[in-house]
Every structure is written in structure tokens, then in C-alpha cells.
Design a protein around this nucleic acid. Sequence first.
DNA 1: CTCAGCTGTTTTTTT
DNA 2: AACAGCTGAG
Length: 752
Amino acid sequence: MSLILENLNEVQQSAVLQEKGPVMIIAGAGSGKTRVLTYRIAHLIQQGVEPFRILALTFTNKAAREMRERIEQIVGTEARNLWMGTFHSVFAKILRFEAEKIGYQSNFTIYDTDDVKSLLKNIVKELGLNDKLYKPNVLYSKISNAKNNLITWQLYGENLDLRLEDENSGRPRFAEIYKIYSQRCFQANAMDFDDLLLNTNKLLDNHLDVLNKYQYKFEYILIDEFQDTNLVQYSITKKLASLHQNICVVGDDAQSIYAFRGANIQNILNFERDYDDLKIFKLEQNYRSTDNIVQAANSLIKHNKAQLPKKVWTSNDSGYKVSVLKSNTDAEEGRLIAESVFEERLANGLKNNDFAILYRTNAQSRAIEESLRRKGIPYRIIGGLSFYQRKEIKDMLAYFRFATNINDVEAFRRIINYPKRGIGATTVEKIIVYSYENEMPLWDILENISSMMRPGKILTAILDFVQFIKSCRIQIEEKDAYDAASFIAKHSGLLRELYDDKTVEGRVRYENLQELLNGIKAFVDNPEVEEKSLSTFLQEISLLTSSDQEKVEDAVTLMTIHMSKGLEFQNVYIAGLEENLFPSQMMLESRADLEEERRLFYVAITRAKRRLFLHYALQRYRFGKLLICEPSRFLNELDPVYLELGDRKNIVQKSTATSNSNYVNSLKNFGKAKSSKPTSTLQIRKSKPSTNFKSSPVECLKEGQRVEHIKFGFGEILNIEKFGNDKRAKVNFEEFGDKTLILSFAKLKVAE
DNA sequence: CTCAGCTGTTTTTTT
DNA sequence: AACAGCTGAG
């Protein structure tokens, strides 16, 4: 027991020892938050609390797994009985157990984003609405938003304010769509991510016996990353904790980066309001980073108005200053990063695992990957298209899904004519619409299809398909996951389809499918797994995310900043610190929440332990266009005292003459930025897109033509060549030198 | 019903 | 650049 405590500072200790009652731990970045949480749980177990009476909710499965392992190291295998996982996975588990109470079957499917969008698209189509106005993306986020705020479709329909808002924004029928969508999910015995929470809440509200059971069961409740919880999550945990009142939340308002998903910092304030005997602990000492990094982060975050008072400090050495590096292009940015990784690794005896490269959007990884590959630096990408999101995998899983849940309409849609069976879109639509209109389960129709259709090729195809699904169901009943999956893979024709595809992509897809089967084999062979059926496997993976891939060898990590939360690395590179990319233009336009973007940058900075590199490029390919970029406003917000501008000689060597002088200029003026001009020298050019700039048609542009570009100004076309379906022009600009532009995209017009 | 080829659209972040 | 959706010919 003292063994536990000697690793902790005073505040950490008292936070661990405050076992009873509501506790809130405000934990600054790198302040040992996970350690406190881990020890707190271990301590409870050592005090004799049964592990299965402790509920610990984390943000990612990975965080849960790591914490479980660490607890296991302290208290032993008992830790396996903890109720620990993400909100979604824990409540999915409870929902499967209690499904009948809310009219679901326990083998319900979890619809992922693609399923949801496809369903929404079809509803809009059926209602004959304008799909420009009713875009699946918009609808989904509106529905998700509503659900996260406990607004069911019934409540939505009754809420006149919301209805009025929809009418004003040109979507008067949204409430109807929400209703139909919810009903369709229910009929398909499916839940989307948000339903896992909303239905849990509903279950606890409407079934007192269930509520009592879990209230009694969970004697201690702990919530990690509390700043990222939304209203449903708060509502559920509050209900569960109301009997024992032993609820401990850990969070950092400065790291709240999921508002777009309904996360609400307000929860922290509500928490103080809802529990008046609340004990608050503030962890403010940072053990992770050098002083320069901590101070740079502080200097950034102080620009945010909405925050809890808190002083993050460290007794660590000041270390290196934070490097700010300019590149001419995204490609050069990648090269600088790769070179730095290479040198730093060699000079300091670091391993690839010690490096992380972070970016705002997944699309940015390409350029960096290329330069890493060129330098022969092994890397792994976390996020992006995860294994389970690949088309071929999702197709295979759709077969599994449909065979286990025969009312899963979205799975049915996916596989009914893939591989091609001669059952076209028209037929499929007829079946589905018939099912909805007559409120008949999909499977009832399929089983009786011969009495509803004219005999012919199509009918035979459907009958074969139904027969096949039936045989799959028998396999799933009788065999283990691997045997059943192999049967389905083989007899569905999917494996053959991909095997026959001799292209490179086809090969990869085939291998991916084999990989999936290997994964299922491993699942079956795992002695810890008790239930080895295919449907258990499906349930296991439906909430897996890209961050859950096991880390393999020693490799540099590439990921979005969102994925990096909770992690730390010796060296961190943040790429793409440009206005409109970070902070993201989208974010600013849609929600105007600059503070969340700033918190995101704060999270990124505080991942670094010993060295931090901030990169921006002057030009970058985005959306297939070469864009001129200006440095992020966030760079100007950092206190220059903790920064150094491009110490790297190779920038000078490898840059062109023009940029060279830019580099020197900005180096000269960087520290004075604040005193001289508020906009600072980092800014190159105001990017006010002139409203009346009209590109000339491509045909008007000839070699030798004098032209004007919206950003580059005036220049002369040197040559034009065909590039795929596009034409590309090399243009010599007076101010910016030679540029190659894609004519169909470039804002370019004939000069007057 | 299927396929090839063309057109237009879309790119924030994730459980 | 990558895709989804449409059109027209078979």
C-alpha cells in the first residue's frame, strides 16, 4: 500500500485516498492523471472493493486496455473483472443484456457512419426531398447532436423552437426524417453510436428495476477525460452514481477537443453544482515536458477566455526551445521532418517509437509518408482508414452481420448484389420499400419472395441468395466463428471475386480478407474468449477503432492531433500550422469556435517531452489545388521567448533564393513581431479572396499569355501540357517565380 | 441488368 | 485526387 503512494506527490496522494463521495480531479497536461486514476482503482481493490463493482469509463479502448494492464501489475489478475471501457462499449454490453426491455433483440447491430448515411440518403430519396438541402452529413450531425442532448425524435417533434429553426434554415421536414430514421433503425434491430447512449439512458429512466440493479452494482464510478463527455453520458453516470455517490471524474478543460461530438465543458461546471460535497483536486505540476514546452503551451492557452483557473508548472529543465520551421511546400515540410527525425534519432540515441508527427487532417499524412519512405524511416499511421473501414472488409462483415441479424437492412443492401447476382437496384428498392410500407420484417418478405414475384432470372437469384443465407445461419449456429466465417467467405463468392482481380489493389484486398480470417482464427484460438461464435466476434469489433491497432515494431507514429490525446513522445512534430488548415477553415466557418482549435493546438504541444517542432509551409496541395498559405495565427500567439526560428541550416541550403531572403527576414523580425505590427511579419499576404475574381475559361489560356492569379498576382504562361484529363500550365509569376497550376482548378484569368 | 465513360462534388476532428 | 452518380449502349 505504501508501495503505491511513494510514487505520487502530495496532491496525487490525497486524490487517491479520497475514496468516498464525489471527487473531481482537474489535471493539467502531463500531470500524472492516468497514474492517479490507475492507483486510485488499485487502491480501492486493495481496500477490499470487488473489482466488478468498479465502473471505469475511458475515452478510447486503448486507454482502457493500458490502464487495466497497469492495474493488473499492481493488484494482479483480479483487475480483469473491472468494468472498464469506453462509454460506448460498456453500455453496449449492458444494452445487450437488457435489450428485450426496450424492445430490441440482444444481437442488435451497431450501424457505423456509412450505414447511417446510406440509410439517411435513402429516406431523403423516398420522401422525394432535395438532396442538396438534406445532405446525409448534415442530417447525421443534426440527429447526433439531438441525441447527445437527450432530444429524442418525439421531443424534437414537439419542440417548436427547433422546428422553427429548421424551417428558417430551409429544412422544415427534418423532424420527420429524424422520426423515420429512428423507426427504421429500430425495425432493423440496429443502433447507431449515439443510440448506445440514448437507449441506455432510456433504459435507466423507464425501468426502475434495471436502474436499481446497476446503481447497486456500481459502487465506485470513475470517468476519465471528463471534459469530453456530453449530456447523455453525464445523465447516465449521474443516475448510476446516485445511490453510492462515489463518483470520481478526471479531466482538463484545456484539453476539451470534442465539442463537435457534443462534448460540453459545461459538464465540469454542472458537476460542481450537482454535488455540493464535492472534493476538488488540482494537479498542476507537469512531469512530462521541458519547461520551455510547458511555458510555450501556457502562453498559447492563456488566449482562451473560457477556462478554469489553473497554473501548470514544471520543475523540469528548460530544455530546447520550441523550433518553428518554414518550408516552401508541403513536400519540403515532409522532407525537413524526415531529416530531423533521422538526425535526432542518431544524435540522441532515440528510437523511432520516440517520435510522433501530428497533423490536423488525415489528408496531410501523404506528403509526410512519402518523405519518410524515401529516408527509409519506418512509420505507422494511426487512424485514417482503419482496417475495419476498408471496403472489402466491410463487405465481408456485412455478410456476417446479415447472417446474424436478418433484419439489418443496411447490411442487406450492401451484399444482395455483391458479388453481382443480377439483382439490380430497382428490385432491391422494391423489396425494402415493400417491407417498410407493410411493416413486414425484411426476412419475412425474402422467405416468401416466390409468392410475390414473377418467376424468372431475378427470382431464382433471390431464392439462391436466401438459401445461402440460411445455410450461413446454420453454420453460425453450429460452428465456431472461424469455420463459419470461412464458409461464408468461400460460398459468398467474395473471396473468388477478389482472387480473380489481378490488379495490385485487388491483391491487397484479397490479402486483407485473408487477414480478417486470420484475425478471426486468433479470436477463436484465444483461451480468454469464452463465447467463440461469429456473432460474439462481430460484437467485439463493432466498437473497435483505428487507435486500437496493436503497435508492432519500432516505428515513427503519424496521427491526427485528436488521436494523440493521452499519449506522449520524446520528440513531436506538428505539421501544417497554417491559417485555414490549423485553425481549420471549416471549424471557423461552421461553429466559429476558435477556442477549441486553440485547445487542440495545446494538446498537440503538450504531447512533447523533450523537443517540439512546429512546421508550416507556404504552399500546399489541398483539394487537388496548389494553395498559397500563410502561417497560423497560433504561431503569433506563442510567446517568442520560448521559440527559436528555424535553426536548421538545410532550409537555407535547399531553399530558392527568394524564399531564402524571406527566411532571413522573418528570422530577424520574429521576436519583435508584437511590438512592431500586430499582424507580424509571419503574415505574407492577406488572403482576402477578392469577390469579383472570375477565372477565364481554359480555352482562353495560351502559351505566352499574360495572366493574373488570385494569389500569385501577374505572370506569363510558359507552357501548357496535358495531364490526364486536365491541362497543366507552367506560369512564371513576377513575384513568386515559376509555378505549375492545374488549369481547371486554378483561379487564373487573362490579364487586362 | 451491366459496364464504361463522363460529370460533378467533396475533403475536420471520432466513438 | 478520389468518388459518387448519371447516361447511354449493349
